[in-house]
Amino acid sequence: MKTNLAAALIFLFAVSFASAEEKRFTVPVDGSPVCGPPTAAVTIIEFIDFQ
């Protein structure tokens, strides 16, 4: 019984980890400064503190 529970927990952990890795967030970009061409294939949104 205990082994089953442990296996289930490991499984759940693995699943959540894998889906977290694949998750893509949508961040609103209107009104924020942009560097680089609008046609770029990759958009990096950075939250920064200059200091």
Binding site: S32, V34, G36, E46, D49
Partner: peptide, 18 residues
């Protein structure tokens, strides 16, 4: 030419010059 950077400001409250 391949990457576009969008900047969001997240200055810390307790740092002097952020």
């Amino acid at each position: 030419g391949k990457v576009r950077l969008v900047i969001k400001n997240y200055p810390y409250k307790y740092r002097d010059y952020s």
